[in-house]
Design a protein around this nucleic acid. Structure first.
Lengths: 210, 210
DNA sequence: GCACATTTTAAACATGCGTTTTAATTTAAA
DNA sequence: TTTAAATTAAAACGCATGTTTAAAATGTGC
């Protein structure tokens, strides 16, 4: 009944799970191909290199998320009033869409984004910025409308604090949830974290600048 | 005139600079020993292993910062009123002290903390938590006093959002400063970033929880 | 100045990595 | 069914890593 999965997709699926859990550099092609139950050489055959595989994994997500986020931001810009909170709420439905397509989609994507961002070598940073640059600009613009009192350079930094809090919480999410469960006897699902995150981010961006 | 520097210290100095710039995993013992101008084997001779070296580098910072931060938090707890902002200001003087001892001390320390925190394998996470656990608790307590309306579990998460924004901004600091300089023609020193960061963090922690 | 412990050095070791090669196999078209 | 292309498979390559070894050099106490 179930459709045959191509080698290419088997690799992508195994790779994204391992990347999200261990990062790009720490994940070997041997782990990936073992998990995917394909031959080691097939990665280089289908993708050319490990770098290209990483970019392909990211592309699968960016192609879904980017248009969705752009749509939400466009919708928002038609509103008479734009609050910081409303800007961040624009992320909710794209991420939820992603969750429907892929169970752990948002978690994986944000983890990937975190690792991509922390990537010093920059080949991924350049790649993601090429695809994310426009959305970044739209985000900055929307946040500026919501917060005209903040200087562009202040907003630039705050947007990166936002990104930092987000991806960091996501990357260390499993460990943190473990600690939280032990300390508070309360399990926190990944999709609940964004509910905790958004108020924090909006409060940070809306804060007076000194 | 200048004192002879021991091999051990030469290794520690070279290691911390490279760790802060490239992370723990991406830095090889060969890079470290080349920069330190010592023999490759001396790392294993003096420290036993790369893991032990990493912990020794962290320890040098923790031993300076932890007591200083504890002192500031204790001083704060004697005040009649405690605000979230005041809690975060407790970091200023310990970090400045660090800067006087080591020129790029705060930058390096926060970068190290970031890499340590992102470290999945956990040997460093466990190590740093052993040394940082008490301060974490004191921080949580102080923040709870400043913000009694927030539930412990909410505070737990927000503290980690804070940590995320901080270390992330620090780790990607060089690249971000580069972009900022290009986009705004404005160079931003590392020690000015904390002035931008603290208002953001305080605003985030003080935000309503939904 | 000698004997012993400490430290430094150079070389090799074992392991894991991304990649390439070459042959076997499967797939698809004629 | 035959033939050519696409894919899979196993093995090896070249390189970088952390670590270990054993000899040389240096320092130290008597």
């Amino acid at each position: 009944m179930s459709k045959r999965v191509s080698t290419k997709d088997k690799i992508l699926n195994a790779a994204e799970a391992l990347f999200a859990e261990h990062g790009f550099e720490q994940t070997s092609l041997r782990q990936i191909t073992a998990d995917a139950e394909v031959n080691l050489a097939s990665v280089n055959y289908h993708f050319g290199s490990k770098k290209a595989l990483i970019q392909a994994v990211m592309a699968r997500y960016l192609e879904v998320l980017m248009p969705a986020l752009d749509r939400e931001l466009a919708k928002l810009s038609e509103q008479p009033q734009v609050t910081t909170r409303a800007v961040f709420d624009c992320f909710r439905s794209p991420l939820n869409e992603l969750r429907q397509v892929r169970k752990h989609g948002p978690t994986i994507f944000l983890s990937l984004l975190g690792y991509a961002y922390a990537d010093i070598q920059g080949h991924l940073r350049r790649y993601t910025m090429d695809h994310f640059g426009d959305v970044m600009q739209n985000l900055l613009a929307a946040l500026h409308v919501a917060n005209p009192n903040l200087s562009p350079v202040d907003m630039f930094w705050r947007l990166h604090f936002v990104l930092g809090a987000t991806v960091f919480a996501q990357v260390s999410g499993p460990a943190l949830r473990e600690i939280a469960a032990a300390d508070f006897g309360e399990a926190i699902a990944a999709d609940q974290m964004i509910d905790r995150l958004i108020p924090f981010l909006a409060g940070g961006v809306d804060a007076p600048s000194r």
